[in-house]
Design a binder for these strands. Sequence first.
DNA 1: AAACGGCGTTAAGATTGTGTTAAGATGAAA
DNA 2: TTTCATCTTAACACAATCTTAACGCCGTTT
Lengths: 232, 232
Amino acid sequence: MYKPKILVVEDDPAITNLIRTTLEAQDYQYHTAKSGSAALMDAVSYNADVIILDLGLPDMDGVDIIRKVRGWSNVPIIVVSARSEDRDKVEALDAGADDYLTKPFSIDELLARLRVALRRSRTEETDMHSSGSIYTNGALSIDYAAGCAYLDGTEVHLTPIEYKLLCVLARNTGKVLTHNYILKEVWGSALASDTPSLRVFMATLRKKIEKDPSNPQYIQTHIGVGYRMIRK
Amino acid sequence: MYKPKILVVEDDPAITNLIRTTLEAQDYQYHTAKSGSAALMDAVSYNADVIILDLGLPDMDGVDIIRKVRGWSNVPIIVVSARSEDRDKVEALDAGADDYLTKPFSIDELLARLRVALRRSRTEETDMHSSGSIYTNGALSIDYAAGCAYLDGTEVHLTPIEYKLLCVLARNTGKVLTHNYILKEVWGSALASDTPSLRVFMATLRKKIEKDPSNPQYIQTHIGVGYRMIRK
DNA sequence: AAACGGCGTTAAGATTGTGTTAAGATGAAA
DNA sequence: TTTCATCTTAACACAATCTTAACGCCGTTT
């Protein structure tokens, strides 16, 4: 029996504890993150089935977190927020959230909506072809639901950052992405790493997906600007 | 452009009218049913993308409707109900509903949640390659999004300055641009470089895009003034 | 005819940007 | 704790690009 994995992003310890004990009682696996930047790091590496996200984090705008996660994943996101204005709800939902609960919320309702999200992610995984969660470009393909990349049908093992990097490029196939844009998308606005670091990840990524890394077929360099995924 | 189809199941004429006018304004197709039995009939024949369902119908229990529909379809169901008890929400969501709104609800929130449901059911993303970010002039073309220039459909490799230079000329096709104007546009400030330098870049650019560089077809020289891109 | 000014072309440093490698640092799992 | 995978940082070689200078050509002027 598979235990679903829940990523809880919340800075209020009281609510974290409430959710934690509840999830344990329901026999779910879970992982907690207390800040937006930590959440972005864990989102890929933990490979959660559902993310429960508090919008009122201290270090980042919640809606930005949704957008960034949506850049490389279709994992269901349930927003929990103290703000009850229509404007806030619409903004979060349009950014890519799947559901929106206002505090104080009923724990039973949260669990029910969690089951809805899990039910959906399970059916999407089983019939992959009806859901548009697979990217294909030449011999390269990405299964966003599974969080895996494939070359000629065989899986290519990528580290979390390499995977995010590939997804950002794939979602913008044909467009040149500047170094800064990529850094912000992959690392998050707050702790943006530097360009030299991006280069080394680009090198390892190319070594894994390009047949001749010195003559790239997929990821083209635009000197002084950035990189670009080529449609094959 | 495909118009999503919404099936509205609601017996209160006031709310039906509100939703109806809103859906029309948003350019959605819709169909209304006033009773549970009618809804079940239409759910099959209308083949909706989303169902908006009022639980308080006179002839049938709303949760039963959800279960029956789920017997043959995974179409997203958004419940709208006057009952705000946790028990009711949990029951409806566990029966197969995707979302639950309590009356009175905000029409903006309903629309946002509708978009969430549609986003999920939509099979393919819009292709952005038909966007108008491509310049064409004779055999010459520029893809601004890709940051590339093409001659007869094959890519021409340009250095950053050459590319900027070409873009400035292309954006002002037919107009004569002075040396100073071009220098300011390409280098950022007139002080950065001088006219002799501009000549060098013009020569290399012509070598790349002109079939006979000594007899330019695209970039014409205006002695003592500047250059001009010719519309072909 | 000779001189001059504006332009195109070429080539040689100088400069910047990039790919690559490898050695610590970090953090999670056993 | 150890072990393993991953990330960060630094350094260096190499490639691409930019700048600068020199030279030849053409048309016009003196």
